[in-house]
Amino acid sequence: MQVTWGNVTVTFSNPEEAKKYAEKVARKLGGQVELHNGQFRIK
Rank of each mutant, 00 (worst) to 15 (best):
T9L: 08
T9I: 11
Q39T: 13
G38R: 05
Q32M: 13
K28N: 08
T9S: 08
A18Q: 01
N14I: 06
G38Q: 04
K24F: 15
T9F: 05
Q32I: 15
R41I: 15
A22C: 03
E34G: 04
T9Y: 05
R41S: 08
G30T: 03
V33Y: 06
N7K: 12
V8Q: 08
K20G: 07
N14W: 05
Y21T: 02
Q2E: 10
F40R: 01
A18T: 02
Q32H: 14
T4V: 15
T9E: 04
A22E: 00
L35N: 05
K43C: 10
R27T: 10
K28Y: 11
Q39I: 15
N14F: 06
T11M: 10
E17K: 12
E23Y: 14
Q39A: 12
T9W: 05
T4D: 02
L29F: 11
V25A: 04
E16T: 12
S13K: 14
F40A: 02
K43W: 12
V25E: 03
V3H: 01
G30N: 11
V8L: 09
G6Y: 08
S13C: 08
G30A: 05
K24H: 14
R27H: 12
Q32A: 09
G38V: 02
Q2A: 11
K43M: 12
F12N: 00
E23Q: 09
G30K: 08
E34Y: 12
T9P: 01
Q39L: 07
V10H: 07
A18C: 04
L35S: 06
Q39K: 08
T11F: 14
E17H: 12
Q32V: 15
N37A: 07
V25K: 04
N37D: 12
V33S: 02
F40Q: 02
N37C: 13
Y21K: 01
N7Y: 09
K19N: 05
F12S: 00
R41M: 15
A26T: 02
E34C: 08
T4K: 09
F40P: 01
E23H: 11
V10C: 15
E16H: 12
S13P: 12
E16Y: 12
R41W: 15
Q2D: 09
K20T: 12
I42Y: 02
P15K: 14
K24Y: 15
P15R: 14
Q32G: 05
W5F: 09
G30I: 03
L35Q: 07
Q39N: 12
G38K: 05
V25H: 02
Q2S: 14
K19W: 14
T9C: 09
T9M: 07
G6R: 07
V10F: 09
Y21N: 01
N37Y: 04
S13I: 10
W5L: 06
W5I: 10
F40N: 01
G6M: 08
V25F: 04
R27C: 12
K24G: 08
F12L: 06
E16L: 13
E17D: 14
E16R: 10
K20L: 13
A22N: 00
A22I: 03
K43R: 13
H36D: 09
E17R: 12
Q32S: 14
Q39G: 15
V8I: 14
T4N: 07
G30P: 02
E34F: 10
V25T: 06
H36W: 13
G31I: 05
A22M: 04
W5C: 11
Q2I: 12
K20I: 12
I42V: 09
E16D: 13
M1Q: 06
T9R: 06
M1S: 11
N14A: 07
V3P: 00
Q32L: 12
A26E: 01
A18N: 00
N7M: 08
Y21I: 03
Q39D: 06
G6S: 07
S13L: 11
N7V: 08
E17W: 10
M1H: 14
A26K: 02
Q39V: 15
I42S: 01
K19S: 07
T4H: 09
W5D: 03
N37T: 03
N14V: 06
A18W: 02
V3K: 00
T11K: 09
A18K: 00
K28W: 13
H36Y: 13
E16G: 10
N14D: 13
H36M: 10
F40I: 09
V8S: 06
G38Y: 04
K20D: 10
G30R: 07
Q32R: 14
Y21Q: 03
P15S: 12
Q32C: 12
W5G: 01
M1C: 11
K43E: 09
V10G: 01
Q39H: 14
Y21H: 04
R27N: 11
K19Y: 14
K28F: 11
